[in-house]
């Protein structure tokens, strides 16, 4: 058999077994670690707005979920209410407020889904701020009837 018959084996066995010098190792590792530090600093500053976006998205999703649960509860309650004959006199102002608010929310939801609900909440917050204790009933319900 001629040596050339097994040329692939010959080349495979002829793979050079080189070893890096300790000086080269130190230089490479030092430079690489510096490059890693630089890259991580750059990327961490680049990624921080992304985190903010993520938290905003998470808040929006949580708000949407809360709205869906509220609407679901309201629809269920509304259904139960239809079955019970009206007593004619409840006299509970808070309950009326909640009922009207829920109706306006329901109409908003029917009009434009979660986006419309979200928009209505945002408009309400913009108009009155987070504290509503000093606001009259009329002000609270104005413009929130789903129209």
């Amino acid at each position: 058999m001629k040596p050339s018959d097994d040329i692939e084996k010959l080349v495979r066995q002829g793979k050079p077994r080189s070893t890096t010098s300790s000086r080269a190792d130190k230089l490479t590792l030092d430079d690489s670690f510096s490059a890693m530090d630089r890259a991580m600093q750059t990327k961490s500053s680049k990624f921080s707005p992304g985190r903010k976006n993520f938290s905003t998205i998470a808040i929006r999703i949580a708000a949407a979920a809360a709205i869906v649960i509220a609407v679901g509860l309201f629809l269920g309650r509304d259904k139960d209410k239809r079955e019970v004959p009206p007593t004619g006199d409840n006299g509970d102002t808070n309950r009326e407020t909640k009922l009207i608010s829920m109706m306006s929310l329901r109409l908003s939801y029917q009009r434009g889904g979660l986006d419309a609900l979200d928009e209505q909440f945002r408009d309400t917050l913009d108009a009155f701020g987070p504290r509503s204790s000093g606001i009259s009933m009329r002000d609270l319900l104005e413009g929130t009837n789903g129209s």
Partner: peptide
């Protein structure tokens, strides 16, 4: 060194 720059 180039590989190290891809960290993250």
């Amino acid at each position: 060194v180039s590989f190290a720059e891809t960290v993250g």
